[in-house]
Amino acid sequence: MTAIVMTLGQGRTTDIPQELSRFQVNSNNPYVSFAAKTREASVLIYTSGKVVFQGTGASVLASQFGYQDILENSKAKSPAGQNLALIGSDEVGNGSYFGGLAVVASFVTPDEHAWLKKLGVDDSKNLNDIKIRQLAPVLEEKIPHKALLLSPQKYNQVVGKGKRHNAVSVKVALHNQAIYLLLQEVARPDKIVIDAFTSQKNYEKYVKAETNHFDNPLTFEEKAEGKYLAVAVSSIIARNLFLENLDKLSQETGFILPSGAGNKSDKVASQILATYGMSGLEHTAKLHFANTQKAQALLKK
């Protein structure tokens, strides 16, 4: 069966739920936020951001949402910077209501590229969680890196109205700290790449408030985890760290906490509210998300 994988945000994939709404079907998979089936193909959107087209008409359907354009531009995925010693930084958990925010910076040299490719290193959004959990321990052992996890409880203490950080500045702080700590332990890299989550101007504005600074120039690139192996390594380690935190919080509460911020998260949040009150959400979720209000509304029904 033909299968094509894209990432939510690539091409016109964000338009899929609206344009294929008449073909929507139910899915029992808790990690699927949207499912649709046409005569020739089906499409699944996972809470991780992965979009999978399957069936004999998968390529045709995917092309309607920009897949062909991505193929034609695939050469851009291997910039000249791959031949440099790189620090790549990425974060996971930013779009998930439950779980913490994980940021990882990794140092990769060109002589490690062949091994990493053979291992199957890729953007974490293109790998299932089983593969992530297999790869991460190997990468953690072999690749110099710094991993930071901001737990939901700590996140809620520092992010929000009237608090030290907003949702962007807290990521700036974590990326800056992870890179700073890694620079203390590795040779000076030829380049530092951050998977762009905000503009460079915005980043530089927020980083001024941080205690630790370094003089290495930074490069900000969108979808950098698909272009640079150093960023891909960071995305895998960060994803695994996020998943481990989600597992831990699930065990502590007795509820299976989903990733993402869809309807499933609203329902689980309302159950946690009913069982533990607001302190339960403070311990497991990012309170400034709209899911908090949705969960409270569900509880009142």
Rank of each mutant, 00 (worst) to 15 (best):
G11I: 02
N263T: 14
G93E: 13
A147L: 12
A269I: 01
A136G: 12
K117N: 12
G254N: 09
A261L: 10
W115Q: 13
Q82Y: 11
A196I: 06
R22M: 14
H113D: 13
T275G: 02
K77D: 14
F53I: 08
A232P: 13
L101F: 11
G81F: 09
I256P: 13
P144L: 10
E185K: 14
Y97P: 12
E225I: 07
K131S: 10
D15A: 03
S265Y: 08
K146I: 14
D69P: 04
N216V: 13
N291A: 10
Y155M: 07
P137C: 09
N26Q: 15
G11F: 01
K208D: 00
L20W: 03
V104C: 15
Q157W: 03
G254E: 13
V32C: 15
D266K: 04
A297N: 14
Q64D: 13
L181G: 03
Q184D: 02
E185W: 03
N176V: 05
I132T: 11
N202A: 07
V172P: 04
G95E: 07
K267Q: 15
L61E: 08
E252W: 00
V103E: 01
M278E: 00
S235P: 08
V52P: 11
H213S: 07
H283F: 05
N94D: 11
K75C: 07
L86W: 09
G81W: 10
G99D: 01
E40T: 13
L257V: 03
Q134A: 12
A224K: 08
L249K: 01
S74P: 02
K248R: 11
A224G: 06
N26W: 15
Q24K: 15
I179C: 04
I192A: 04
K50D: 00
V170C: 04
K50Q: 10
A76C: 07
N166A: 06
V43E: 02
K294A: 06
S259H: 12
Y67R: 12
Y203R: 02
E221L: 08
S169N: 09
N291Y: 09
K208I: 04
H145K: 02
